[in-house]
């Protein structure tokens, strides 16, 4: 048996987004009104509280000796509770990065109009075990001059604007 054009022809009916939005076919609209309050738990709770203080904190696994960031209550490799808290630096190196012309909902940024592309990166934090990275944004750098291994440092919001969030760090910028 081959699957042929004829067999699939009537399995689905092609529409355009306009056909739906302008009512060529009937449709129903719905916007879910669901909101969440996610418990931070002890590990992320302390992580966020320290971000408010302008510091980055990690946690150590006493079995594999990794210094884990973001901190977590158990080591996902050794499956044992983690040990002591360890402050790490707010500097690091770029592991990999992106020059993004789109926002989270795939909407295009007005690059021609002068909007700077987003430059998210995985940043390996100094003081954590090598390879332990976090996702954050880069700025104060020409997007096209970012390179692997570039040294960067956190740019913090002023203390009065910090709320205990990953965005208390505005972005990371290059340091030479």
């Amino acid at each position: 048996m081959e699957i042929t054009d004829k067999m699939v022809a009537k399995t689905a009916t092609k529409l355009s987004a306009e056909d739906i939005q302008k009512g060529k076919v009937l449709s129903v609209k719905w916007t879910p009104n669901l909101k969440y309050a996610w418990d931070n738990g002890p590990a992320l709770g302390r992580y966020l509280a320290e971000l408010k203080n302008g510091r980055i904190i990690a946690k150590k696994c006493n079995k594999c000796h990794r210094i884990l960031i973001p901190p977590r209550m158990f080591c996902e490799l050794c499956w044992v509770p983690t040990g002591e808290w360890v402050y790490v630096k707010d500097t690091g190196i770029v592991n990999t990065w992106v020059i993004s012309y789109v926002d989270w909902k795939a909407g295009r940024l007005d690059i021609k109009g002068g909007v700077r592309p987003f430059t998210p990166a995985v940043i390996e934090i100094d003081g954590a075990t090598k390879g332990m990275g976090i996702l954050h944004l880069l700025n104060e750098v020409d997007p096209w001059k970012i390179y692997r291994g570039m040294r960067v440092k956190a740019v913090w919001k002023p203390p009065e604007e910090r709320i205990g969030a990953i965005t208390d760090i505005k972005y990371f910028k290059p340091v030479e």
Binding site: Y36, W38, N40, L44, Y47, L48, P70, V98, S100, V102, D103, W104, K105, A106, F118, P120, I134, L135, H136, L137, A165, I166, T167
Partner: peptide, 15 residues
């Protein structure tokens, strides 16, 4: 994405 440590940065899958 992790709702506390990553979502506030508004990541996209394309990133």
């Amino acid at each position: 994405f992790d709702h506390t440590t990553e979502q506030p940065l508004y990541p996209t899958l394309i990133w």
